[in-house]
């Protein structure tokens, strides 16, 4: 798993215009190969809904009314705000996901802060810090 994450982390840190199919393939393969079972026994929060497989690294914080899964990987120290829904996605270490973000088929790069509320995002890579929906749409890299 670590090896695959490292590879994906490296690719999303220097995205090229024609990387779409490569990213899509990497995300798909990572989720199918590495998330055969859930690991949800160690998080801070108040009973979210999990549809397996969901894999949580250490010290993940989860808000109220959150739905995670299927096929979700959350890295170390990730913070998920209230009313968030995530499916088929990789969220790298130290990311903050703002309130009521609905995410499907996404990769969120290390240390990104998504403070934009009430935003649906799908089929994209996001690396960086954003405060508004408009900012987010400016920096996101769509791969479908």
């Amino acid at each position: 798993m670590k090896k695959h994450l490292k590879e994906i982390g490296k690719i999303i840190s220097s995205l090229e215009l024609n990387s779409q199919s490569q990213i899509r393939g990497l995300l798909y393969n990572f989720l199918r190969m590495n998330l055969k079972h859930s690991k949800i026994d160690n998080y801070i929060g108040d009973y979210p809904t999990f549809i397996e497989p969901v894999y949580l690294e250490d010290n993940v914080k989860i808000g109220d009314d959150v739905l995670l899964g299927p096929n979700v990987y959350l890295g170390k120290n990730v913070e998920i705000s209230d009313y968030v829904e995530i499916t088929n996605s990789i969220v790298f270490d130290n990311v903050v996901v703002g309130e009521n973000i609905k995410m499907d088929n996404c990769i969120i790069g290390k240390n990104s802060l998504l403070h934009c509320k009430n935003t649906p995002i799908d089929n994209c890579v996001v690396v960086g810090n954003v405060k508004t929906k408009e900012d987010l749409y400016k920096i996101m890299y769509k791969f479908k």
Partner: peptide, 23 residues
Amino acid sequence: TVQINTGRECALNAYHIHQVLKN
């Protein structure tokens, strides 16, 4: 099998099932 842990919700709903089946 696929397990859904509903947390604070007291029943499954159609959306849960939809999310499982579409994957």
